Amino acid sequence: MGNTKLQMMIVTALFTAIIGILAQVAIPLPLVPITGQTLAIGLAATILGSRYGTYSTILYMIIGAIGVPVFSQMTSGLGILLGPTGGFIVGFIPTVYFMGKYLEMTRFNVTHAIIANVMGMFITLIFGTVWLKIVASLTWYEAFLSGFAPFVAVGLIKAVLAGWIGIVVRRRLKEAHILVPAA
């Protein structure tokens, strides 16, 4: 099995990269683009659980904040985190933690993974919409129309995909002894 701590550090770093890669899959909208970040966050939580999923998300934010262009559309820097879309990125931390905790307290199966990912989608959207309203000086209605409403349908699709694919990949990684039993 080898050094399990090292294995989990490597898998965590891999998921940080996956988040950065899927962030580049983007459909531009006026204020907030539709991206693959939320799919990647759902996969991280579903596959890695609360601890390592959260680590991968924090690492993603740190490397983006210091200038590595991992945020949507190859952007980076503190300006992105403090700007109108920063709340979505910051909201990934409680989102992935909550989803992982939910799965750890219930079961890592497709049904619970989809439930966790749907709840996580709403956590991210609420965080991002509140932040957008404040930073962009929008009304609640404008923030809802720009930061919440356009993302619900595609978010539900990504939640189902992340739940289903995440459980399949998690099982395979556990069978291959890449994920340690506590993950």
Score class of each variant (00 low, 15 high):
T54W: 00
P69V: 12
L132K: 14
A45I: 11
V180P: 02
F88T: 00
A113S: 15
V70E: 05
S76R: 13
T16Q: 07
V152L: 14
P84C: 00
L82F: 09
Y55Q: 12
L48C: 13
M61I: 10
T106R: 14
L6T: 15
T46K: 13
S146H: 12
G36P: 14
F151A: 10
I126L: 13
M74K: 08
N109E: 14
R51L: 12
L31R: 12
T54C: 01
A40Q: 10
V154Y: 05
F122E: 08
I93L: 11
I93C: 08
F71I: 08
I178H: 01
L173E: 13
G166R: 05
R51I: 09
I47F: 02
S50P: 05
G77E: 07
V118N: 10
I34Q: 15
V110L: 11
W140I: 11
A183W: 04
A182M: 14
F151T: 10
G87I: 00
G166L: 08
G83C: 09
I123L: 00
F151R: 13
I66W: 07
Y60H: 04
E142Y: 00
I19R: 01
A17S: 07
T46P: 12
A176K: 15
V70T: 04
L14T: 12
I27N: 03
I114D: 03
L6F: 05
A153S: 15
S50V: 06
K5T: 14
M121H: 05
G2N: 10
G36Q: 14
M1D: 01
I178N: 02
L78S: 02
L103I: 12
F151P: 07
T106M: 11
G36T: 09
L179G: 13
L138P: 05
L125Q: 07
T85R: 03
L29H: 11
F98R: 11
Y141T: 04
A159W: 01
M105A: 14
N109V: 10
F92T: 01
L43I: 04
F151G: 10
K5M: 11
M1I: 03
L14S: 09
G49F: 01
G67C: 05
F15S: 07
I165L: 15
L179K: 13
W140C: 01
L59P: 02
I47R: 05
S50N: 15
V169L: 15
G67Y: 09
P94G: 11
A183H: 08
P28V: 09
I157S: 10
I27C: 02
I167Y: 12
F88S: 00
A162I: 06
P33T: 11
R171I: 00
L82Y: 04
S76C: 14
L145I: 07
S72N: 15
L14F: 13
A40S: 10
L22Q: 12
I58M: 08
I21H: 02
A182C: 10
V160C: 05
P30Q: 12
G86K: 01
I93F: 02
V90N: 00
A182S: 15
N117I: 09
P181Q: 06
Y52P: 04
R172Q: 09
